[in-house]
Simulated scan of single mutants.
Amino acid sequence: MSVFADLHRGDEPLLLPNAWDHASATALAAQGFRAIGTTSLGVAAAAGLADGASATRDETLRLALALGSQPYLLSVDAEDGYSEDPDEVAEFARELACVGAVGINLEDRLGSVALHAAKIAAVKSAAPDLFVNARTDTCWLGDGDGDGDGEETTARADAYQRAGADGVFVPGLTDPADIAALVERLHAPLNILYTPTGPTVPHLADLGVRRVSLGSLLYRRALGAALEAAAEIRAGRAPHGATPSYDEVDALSRRGDLTHSDGP
């Protein structure tokens, strides 16, 4: 079992923050997070592309190349694998593994169960050591009440586990009773997307959740803080909140293969 897989089976769930660039990943690692995920929304937004549209394959691979050799474990949000062809998805996963990623997140978008299972199987064949987190969107794209279709969720999770998935991710699932029931039905670790209005991390741990992802939350919070600061300055007030210095951010952004000029 890999070190990353072990983090899903400890006394506490793996709390996985999601970065969108080198500086954010390095800053999170400096806070003691042993594993860092990427957020597809942050990657897409930085490139001026739509999230969830299979448009950011190259950008995602470039970010993985920048982060994969760093002293933390990297899991990559690869949307649906950027292709309907399982062999192409497997090749992308192999490339991620080659640049140092230890995990991949693949979403089904409520498409064909058989196709998503085939993608998972192909990835496990091409990159057997890559931790495949199989995401089903039964709650995320469902009726919005946070419970979704429990039978559909379980059926999809079962199919993905049989295909070789190492973990199951159900974003949008927030009802504690439904979470606990799903944990009982799974043999793979359950990943839940944290939401400020849902259960706390300690509560999720008590329910048996083994991985808690922050998704795009940190990126959206950072953008919100930037907008608040701009509004405060425009209104003649000094902005509040933590503000890293220029030198601190520059240090977070440095990679050994890059050179930096001085000045803002």
Rank of each mutant, 00 (worst) to 15 (best):
R156S: 14
A126T: 09
P17C: 13
L141Y: 06
H203I: 10
Y72A: 00
V170F: 00
S112Y: 05
E95N: 13
V168R: 00
D129S: 04
L182P: 04
A121N: 02
Y72V: 06
E88C: 02
Q31L: 15
D85E: 09
L218R: 05
G198C: 04
P171F: 07
F33D: 07
G241S: 07
V183N: 05
A205Q: 12
A163Q: 14
P13F: 08
A47I: 15
F33N: 02
G52M: 00
S213W: 06
L204D: 01
A127E: 00
P196I: 00
W20M: 08
T138V: 15
L65M: 04
A165P: 06
H8F: 13
G10V: 04
P71C: 03
G68S: 10
G52I: 12
A226I: 06
L214Q: 15
E91P: 01
V170N: 02
G198W: 08
A165V: 09
R57S: 04
F131T: 08
A238D: 05
R57P: 12
R221H: 03
V89E: 06
L227F: 12
D257V: 00
R234Q: 03
K119I: 14
R237M: 01
T26N: 05
V212K: 07
L67R: 11
V212C: 11
G10Q: 10
H22G: 11
G48S: 11
G103T: 11
